[in-house]
Simulated assay, not measured.
Amino acid sequence: MAEIIKLYEKNTSEKHLQKIAKVLKEGGVIIYPTDTVYGLGCDIKNNKALTKVARLKNVKLEKANFSFICEDLSNLSDYVSQIPTNTFKILKRNLPGPYTFILPGNNNLPNVFKKKKTVGIRVPDNNIARSIVKTLGNPIVSTSIYDEDDLVEYTTDPELIAEKWGDLVDLVIDGGYGDNMASTVIDLTKDEPELIRQGKGSAEI
């Protein structure tokens, strides 16, 4: 059964963050809060963990539409090709926030994602998520545990999340009740922004 770690947005425990980062570096999979629904995440650099997340979501890893959770926009160039100034302005204006922005990937993408040519970038407006990424030192690959067919409580209440997922993951980070609406997904790889999925964030960017 996964260990549950309680964290608070305004006062994230350094000791707990170090423990979470250690689990991630060792190939662990965690469930953690964001500014939308709870996410299922792992270290972007650990192939074994990436494969496990894909298996948990019932998708082939090379075809999975996972997001990269970043602390801020400073490391964008690690995985994203050079983007126009107006695109960067959109990112700066809306992040941190409840958005997944699809951007052109570069050659630094993990091998399993290189064929996709694009990457979904998230900078959640949630201090717990960003602190985990900061402590880890690189992005987390993430997918929501939200399921259209699920009872809402199972994706918003950390105790019920732990009950349902506890045997499948290594840690559940309890950051209080989550939201029941996923992020808004916007494609910024074309001349004009294209709304892919309407979620919590406004489509007016």
Rank of each mutant, 00 (worst) to 15 (best):
P33N: 07
Q198M: 07
K57L: 02
G39F: 05
L171E: 12
M1Y: 03
P110M: 13
I128R: 15
P33V: 13
F88L: 15
I161E: 05
K48S: 09
F113N: 01
K6F: 10
N127W: 03
P193V: 13
P84S: 09
M181C: 12
S131W: 05
L73S: 12
N108Q: 00
V29M: 03
F66N: 05
G41C: 13
T156V: 14
I83G: 11
V133Q: 00
Y79M: 01
A54M: 02
A182P: 05
K190P: 00
N46V: 00
P124M: 03
E71A: 01
G97C: 13
T12H: 07
N46R: 05
G137I: 14
V185P: 09
Y99R: 13
K25I: 00
T189E: 04
I128T: 08
P104Y: 15
E71R: 07
M1L: 08
Y177P: 11
N75Y: 15
H16W: 04
A64M: 05
D72V: 04
E26H: 13
C42E: 01
N58V: 12
D179M: 09
R130N: 09
D35S: 01
N11Y: 02
I145Q: 04
L17H: 14
N180A: 14
S77K: 15
M181N: 15
L151S: 08
E159H: 07
V169S: 08
N47P: 12
T12E: 01
K22L: 04
S13N: 11
H16E: 10
D174V: 10
L103N: 06
P158D: 10
L168T: 01
D187N: 12
I20M: 08
P96T: 01
A21E: 08
K52P: 10
P158Q: 08
T12I: 14
T118C: 00
I196F: 01
V29L: 07
I83Q: 06
N108D: 13
N138D: 08
N127Y: 10
N94F: 11
K117E: 07
I69F: 15
K164G: 11
K117H: 15
V53N: 06
L17P: 14
T156S: 08
P33S: 08
K117Q: 09
K15I: 13
V29G: 11
I132P: 13
E148L: 09
K6P: 03
D191L: 06
